[in-house]
Amino acid sequence: MQIIDMNTTDLRALNTALQAGEAGSAWSVHNPAGRHALAVGLMEDMTVTIDGHAGYYAAGMNQKAQVTINGNAGQGVAENMMSGAVHVKGNASSSAGATAQGGLLVIEGDAGARCGISMKGVDIVVRGSVGHMSAFMGQSGNLVVCGDAGEALGDSLYETRIFVRGTVKGLGADCEEQPMTEQDRTILAGLLERAGVTDCTPADFRRYGSARTLYHFHVDNASAY
């Protein structure tokens, strides 16, 4: 385990070291103090533990690495992640997992507004609740919410699957509740297992997806554009 103390190391040195880290290596970042852009652009299958709170864009554009944040994460955690996994032990601010194309993002607490905005293949599991406009324009991947969802869930949704256990304050344009298929149950069960969620089952969730009425411009949908 290699330790980097942010009290004595600047951000450039941290990210330079992590981006050069070898596969299989393990790193611990001490005293992050909410610094932005921690552990961004990682490229190897390595483990990084951020021991404290992280600012904006922690683990941004992650490839392969397993990043754990032992605290809260600021805006855009794991934004545009390609692969690997990011695990937030606390809460995450808005736009968690924005535009991410792969990998697994697990948030133990709540996530703010626009969780999974424009997601493109990532799997996101939120143990708590998500804020408004979550999965806005979600293109693919899965958003699992073990708590409640705020207003306008899945607005302008493409092909992302959304699973919510609690209440949904409101659905966005073109998002609808859909029957849970056997394939959905299998996907959801797999995600709960990967996220280490053991206190609920797929049967507790409802499934939401795109009604696909906005896929082609049509005058009858003008008010939704």
Partner: peptide
């Protein structure tokens, strides 16, 4: 459709942080 705003930042203060992230990557 493409969104009119960036999905993970709004305003110049956020933009400064976003630019820092892009530079770090």
């Amino acid at each position: 459709r493409s969104a009119c705003r960036h999905p993970d930042w709004t305003g110049p203060d956020d933009l400064e942080i976003k630019i820092e992230e892009l530079r770090e990557i």
